[in-house]
Amino acid sequence: MATPYSPSIRRRRLSSELKRLRAQAGLTIVEAAKKAGLGKSSLGAIEQAESKAVPAGTLNKLLDLYEVTPEQRATLHELAKLAGKKGWWSQYKDLIPQMLADFEAEASTFRTYESQVIPGLLQTPQYADAIFRANLVRDDDEIDRRVEARVKRQGVLNRVDPPTFMALIDEAALRRMVGTSDVMQEQLRHLTQMASRHNINIYVLPFSAGAHPSTEGSYVIMDFTDLRDASIAYLETPATSMYLEEEHQVRLFNDMFGSTQSCAMAPVQSLAFINRLLQELEE
């Protein structure tokens, strides 16, 4: 099975390249739009990766203006083509936060802090089911689809060349009884199994750490292999989701994660701690 690609990543890369080519040509966005016969707002949307698709004719006008080589032209047309396609997650667009699975598909590194629940990519189906049922207003069909979507998202950790996954999990998330005791036992066992993988590191943030740099809430930082693809900090609320990619914004979250990690147990200690909690539940 081919590794899925992210249309959003392709769109961001295309916009970055077109912006670079315009600057290389010594043109302002107003000048480039006028010479290419486009509206300034239209070109602005393309350069900000806000356009879902860039028609071949529009792209050709820009590439003619920027005098790109045939090789560059072919590459950029392929990016535009891939950016316009949909991933498997489009069938769950009413359930998965906008573009989340899209970015996850190509992330090379995940760094996440979770204060209330186990990180979604590490949840068992039964644990996820209990989390979704806590909403109290969802019917069984919606819950089943949400669990199905979450399990599919977890496929990114099973790739032949899997991403690095670093999870800072607050002790509260490990002790909170979600579902039944059996559900929690299965979930904790699953964490120990996932922690044994070479690409997954789990850090438990104990209550004894007290106040720490990430007390304001959970977040995920995603990095990408291609240097042209800026890292993203992702935050989720009941009403919306946010994707922050400005350098100073991502730096803030990088610093928060690093400082919080220094307050947490090392992976070996964390695994021992999870096993102790598991033994307590089994007694």
Rank of each mutant, 00 (worst) to 15 (best):
L21C: 04
S208F: 00
L65Q: 07
V220N: 03
N201G: 14
H212V: 12
V137D: 05
D223Y: 00
P162M: 04
T109C: 11
G210M: 09
P162L: 06
F110G: 00
G26E: 07
A239K: 04
E114R: 05
F165W: 08
R22V: 05
P55S: 03
R175Y: 08
R138W: 11
H248I: 13
S231A: 15
T225C: 12
T164R: 14
A130H: 07
Q116K: 08
Q116P: 01
Q123V: 11
A32S: 05
V183Y: 01
K34Y: 09
V178S: 07
Q116C: 05
K81H: 11
E17A: 11
R176M: 09
R197I: 02
T112P: 01
R73C: 08
R150G: 00
Y219T: 01
A130P: 07
Y127H: 10
I169A: 06
F207H: 14
I29R: 15
P125M: 09
I232A: 05
A36N: 13
Y203L: 10
M99I: 12
V178R: 04
S270T: 09
G37N: 08
N201K: 15
E106W: 01
T69N: 13
L14W: 01
S218E: 11
A36I: 12
E47V: 11
G120I: 00
A195T: 04
M222Y: 02
E31R: 15
H77L: 09
F132C: 10
L27M: 13
E282Y: 11
E78M: 07
